[in-house]
Structures are given as C-alpha cells and as structure tokens.
C-alpha cells in the first residue's frame, strides 16, 4: 500500500479537520471584520486618551506573534481563573488578532478619505454614527478589498497554529497521520493543497467584488 493509499483511507480525518478549520476560520474572520469596523468607528473624531489607548492596543496586537496570543489565551488565562475550551480560545485569539489588523487596514484608508464627503454629510444633517455606517464604511471596505483579501489568507494560515493548543483542525489531522504512519511529506502536501484551494477561491471572490465596484465607477471616481 502506497503512502497515498494510506492517506486516501484516512480521508475522513482530513475532511473533518478541513471542516473544523473552515468553521474556525469563518467564525473568527467574520468576528475580526466586525471588530475591525467597530474599532475604526471608535477611532473617529478628535484624539482622546481612550483613542490613544485603543491605538496602543491595536499596535500591541499587531506586533505580537499570533502563536503567543494563542498560548496566552489557552494556557495563560487559566492562571487568572478563566478556562477557555481550546476551540473557543482559538476562535477568540484569531478574531481579536486579525480584528486589530483589519482596524489598521481600515485606518490607513480612513486617513485619506476625502474630507469634502464628510462635510457634505454634515451639511445634510448626518450624525456621526449614521455617516459612518452609510457613507464612510462602505467606501473604505470597497477600497481596501485587496488588503482584506490578503488578510483573509493570512488568517486562514494562522488557523494552523491552533494545532499547538490541541484544536483538531486540518494541520492537526496531517500531523497525527504523519506521526502514525511516518509519511510527513505526503500528509503535509495534501494539507497545503487544501489551504491553497481555499485561498485561491477567496482571491477569486475578492476579484469579483472588484468588478462589481468597477461597474459602479468606483475605481475611477
């Protein structure tokens, strides 16, 4: 029986791991996106101590290796009396970590957002929250979509780190099979294929969103 045959027979393990990875990824990246948008809103307006603290938090997260955050949430929090299930610790770590990256991506775009559009909204009686949701955020999300696509791939790859806090995801499946049958090359090649397939699918979707934007004259506005 060749190594590939062994892997084929273990396909259920890969599939379960893959589904688990996709669940973790889908949930955490959605939460991260919402967290990023919310942080961007909190950063609106005049500088304040609260906003400065938020910036420090965002930068602190961005400068932290993701592995450390996953470790801290899973192995560190219990010393403070908070014990998270490995799966939820992973989802939480990914959501907060990539939420900070999203916030920073959006912030960069917000810095160059045309002031005239804001003034037009103010002159038409918009309050800050409504202006943000209706006028600022949709444009910022459209404009930053290449960076959002990049971040999606980044976050997908970060799910692989969760193997070290015992989450049974895709990389964990490969790890366990390669350990059991000593076929690391083939097992990891299969897993790489999964990550690539999902990444390529996401890139295609982001490209399609770009066409949608171009049709609306947004990209040459």
């Amino acid at each position: 029986m060749s190594n590939w045959d062994i892997l084929w027979q273990a396909r259920d393990e890969f599939w379960t791991g893959f589904l688990n990875t996709m669940q973790i990824f889908g949930l955490s990246i959605t939460a991260a996106f919402v967290i990023g948008c919310f942080m961007l809103y909190l950063l609106e307006g005049r500088p304040s101590v609260g906003k400065l603290s938020l910036r420090v938090f965002i930068d602190g997260m961005r400068m932290l290796p993701f592995l450390m955050l996953a470790y801290l949430l899973y192995y560190g929090l219990p010393t403070l009396g908070v014990r998270l299930d490995a799966w939820w610790a992973g989802v939480g770590a990914l959501a907060v970590y990539h939420g900070c990256y999203f916030a920073e991506i959006f912030r960069g775009s917000r810095l160059v957002f045309p002031q005239g559009q804001i003034e037009a909204a103010q002159a038409h009686g918009f309050t800050r929250a409504r202006m943000f949701v209706r006028l600022i955020l949709p444009q910022i999300v459209m404009q930053t979509r290449p960076l959002i696509g990049n971040q999606l791939i980044y976050a997908l790859k970060d799910t692989a780190f969760l193997v070290i806090i015992t989450v049974r995801e895709l990389t964990a499946a490969a790890n366990s099979l390669s350990g059991t049958y000593f076929i690391p090359t083939e097992a990891f090649l299969v897993v790489i294929g999964f990550y690539w397939a999902v990444s390529i699918a996401m890139e295609i979707i982001i490209k399609q969103c770009g066409r949608f934007g171009a049709r609306r004259g947004l990209d040459h506005a």
Partner: peptide
C-alpha cells in the same frame, strides 16, 4: 444635525458620495 438639515449646501468640489448612484445620492439624506 437637525438645524443643519434645514440648510442645503453646494460645494465647489461637488462632494457627491461616489459609492451611491445619482438617485441614491439624492435620497440618502
């Protein structure tokens, strides 16, 4: 915002909202 809504302003640089079509620019507020 309520008092501002009683004035209509037209800017030198138009300041339309580019992600909304013409009709929606007008109905937005």
């Amino acid at each position: 915002a309520r008092v501002r809504a009683q004035t209509g302003m037209v800017f030198q640089s138009f300041n339309l909202w580019p992600h909304l079509n013409v009709l929606h620019n007008i109905t937005e507020a």
